[in-house]
């Protein structure tokens, strides 16, 4: 059950990030930190479902559920336990808080991790109602409505571009 919930939420999170990447300059700015060929992976737990955000040589981003092998261009964030993953992925605890409380591990270059944290934080601010989330700091203001982001994410999920990198 936890695996299914995590897989669905990760898929939706990936779609939300791609929607915001097109519509929100803040998301664009965070994602410009990554060179073409980079892959950002969020894994629910060791061996658990994964979201792989990949930047192609042309600079286009895709979101998929197949991971890439770790290497110099890949940063992978892994939650230490299913409980921590579910808390963060369902927005009950922000990803920033998960980082602050050492609930995650990072494999790869730590110097490019912060833009990913901010990007996920921004996506969570758009995907979850304010009364639901318990951020450790203030959530960034929305530039798309909750409904707008959800519709965009659903459309993204069913679009032909949504594929595994």
């Amino acid at each position: 059950m936890k695996t299914m919930v995590a897989a669905v939420v990760l898929k939706f999170l990936g779609a939300g990030i791609l929607v915001l990447q097109r519509k929100d300059s803040r998301m664009q700015e965070e994602l410009t930190a990554y060179a073409p060929g980079s892959a950002l992976q969020i894994r629910a737990w060791d061996g658990g479902p994964v979201l792989c955000l990949a930047k192609s040589a042309s600079g286009a981003w895709t979101a998929g559920s197949l991971s890439r092998p770790l290497g110099s261009e890949v940063v992978e964030v892994v939650f230490k336990s299913p409980r921590s993953a579910i808390l963060a992925l369902l927005g009950l605890q922000s990803v920033s808080a998960a980082f602050l409380e050492n609930r995650v591990t990072v494999r790869g270059d730590l110097m490019v991790t912060l833009p990913l944290v901010r990007a996920v934080n921004l996506a969570e601010a758009h995907l979850f109602p304010r009364w639901w989330t318990k951020p450790i700091g203030t959530l960034p203001p929305r530039r798309l409505t909750l409904m707008g982001t959800w519709f965009g994410a659903l459309a993204q999920l069913f679009s032909p571009q949504e594929r595994s990198p």
């Binding site: 770790l70 050492n102 591990t105 990072v106 494999r107 790869g108 730590l110 991790t113």
Partner: peptide
Amino acid sequence: FAGVEGFHA
């Protein structure tokens, strides 16, 4: 070096 890079990894 890539084998040891990271946070709690």
